[in-house]
Design a protein around this nucleic acid. Structure first.
Lengths: 146, 146
DNA sequence: TTATTATGCATAACATGTTAACTAAATTTA
DNA sequence: TAAATTTAGTTAACATGTTATGCATAATAA
């Protein structure tokens, strides 16, 4: 479906990246929506599962979320009992964000499905091409940021 | 800057695509912001410059904007006098969106700068790699949508 | 022709993206 | 030490993303 060659302005880098991202996200969305998680909320949980107790600034960098968005997202996750805030001794400005047992439980339910989807994509597309794509994307960012 | 190898979950397709897109967008943002245009508003204007008088559904597809977003965006552009709505004879549900002279004038101011930025990126990255990237992205979308 | 369904589009409601204040705590400077 | 500055984080305000709902007009079935 929708195989028509891209015309004019639609064949642009931002649009192509957007389309690719949306196509990929569609594969991951269902298992997240099942648990009422947005892609952004899921990013925060994964980041904390990888390294717990990060402060907001660290979390913001790792999840590629701006502070205002992250602030609201963490509030939401706190209300849902998936993470908690803890005081950082020695600096009253910071707060460490810690994943709860319930958060970990949720992670353990979703992560396998997510990995499965990822494997599916990698296989469909070809692992070699996938690696090549990563490298091109990294290099693009690198070259642009000069 | 920020050259640390991506760890863990940050090396994922959605994240890499997001980073690349943001890096690219940053190059185009300034000339748009100069005229108080968002990337989305600019997409609509470009689409209409390419083919005028599209209805909302067509515009939605070509700009990769969902109808609710597009609805608000067009309202904004109408207020600013950059486009107008015209009745479609034979179907009272549709409305044709038409770019105004002022809209065209704005396009003619921004488009050259935009093209310039694009050339810069293509040159920095390498035209061959850019073409390869396009092809990989297209193929990724194609393979995923099955 | 009337009832039903489909289409085109708008609005509602809420999460996120984005820029700009703003607060309080920590650090630096004078 | 007092004042200025920096840092970490929140809140405000508005545009957009996203799903659901509503509402006409059009097309179709009965």
């Amino acid at each position: 479906m929708n195989k028509a060659k891209l015309r004019g302005f639609n064949r642009s880098l931002p649009m192509s990246l957007l389309r690719a991202r949306e196509a990929v996200m569609k594969k991951f969305a269902p298992s997240l929506k099942e648990h009422n998680l947005s892609a952004q909320q899921w990013r925060v949980i994964r980041a904390l599962k990888e390294e717990d107790g990060l402060d907001m600034s660290e979390l913001s960098e790792r999840c590629y979320l701006l502070m205002p968005s992250l602030s609201r997202i963490v509030q939401n996750l706190v209300v849902r009992g998936l993470v908690v805030r803890k005081l950082v001794e020695g600096d009253q400005r910071r707060s460490a964000i810690v994943i709860t047992d319930e958060g970990i439980k949720l992670f353990n339910i979703i992560a396998p499905k997510s990995a499965e989807r990822y494997e599916y994509i990698a296989e469909k597309f070809g692992p070699g091409k996938l690696e090549l794509l990563y490298e091109l994307l990294d290099e693009l960012v690198e070259k642009i940021d000069e």
